[in-house]
Amino acid sequence: MQPGDRERSPLAQMRRGVVEYCVLALLGKRERYAVELVQVLARHGLIAGEGTVYPLLSRLRRQGLVETTWQESAAGPPRRYYRLSDEGAAAVGRFAQDWASLSESVDRIIGGEDGQA
């Protein structure tokens, strides 16, 4: 293990756990194609490259959380656009509630509160 790996490992695991829901949340705002998603996620430091997003989008499509359409592009071949399905919207809603509860608990503990009176 290299110096610093121990510190990065938990962060990498957390990123992997939330990227799926970040993709769903982004698609809840408007439909997008994969490259747009890669750019937003990379800009926020959630992924390093495209290798994470394409398999994720395929899995989300198979699970019925996103729907796709092909649209012509003025800049090249047609693009596959992704949009949130009703099931995906429900999943994002559940995650948002769970995230709020989890992050509140972690913030309290990190802030020194242990829940004892």
Rank of each mutant, 00 (worst) to 15 (best):
D5L: 05
E7S: 02
R8N: 10
S9R: 14
S9C: 09
L11S: 09
L11E: 11
A12Q: 13
A12H: 14
A12I: 14
A12Y: 15
G17T: 05
G17Q: 08
Y21W: 09
C22R: 08
C22A: 09
C22N: 05
L24W: 03
L24K: 01
L24H: 02
G28Q: 03
G28F: 01
K29L: 12
V35Q: 14
E36G: 01
E36T: 01
V38C: 04
V40N: 00
L41V: 00
H44W: 10
G45W: 00
G45C: 03
L46T: 01
L46R: 01
I47T: 03
A48L: 08
G49S: 03
L56W: 08
L56A: 03
L60D: 03
R61E: 08
R62A: 04
Q63S: 06
G64T: 04
G64E: 00
W70Y: 15
E72N: 13
G76N: 07
R80Q: 14
Y82M: 00
Y82P: 01
L84F: 01
D86S: 11
A89R: 15
A89M: 12
A90G: 03
A90F: 09
V92K: 03
G93F: 13
F95E: 02
F95H: 07
A96C: 09
Q97K: 09
Q97P: 05
S103M: 11
E104I: 06
V106C: 06
D107M: 13
R108D: 14
R108N: 11
R108V: 06
G111A: 12
E113M: 02
E113W: 09
E113D: 08
G115D: 01
G115E: 02
Q116G: 15
A117I: 10
A117G: 14
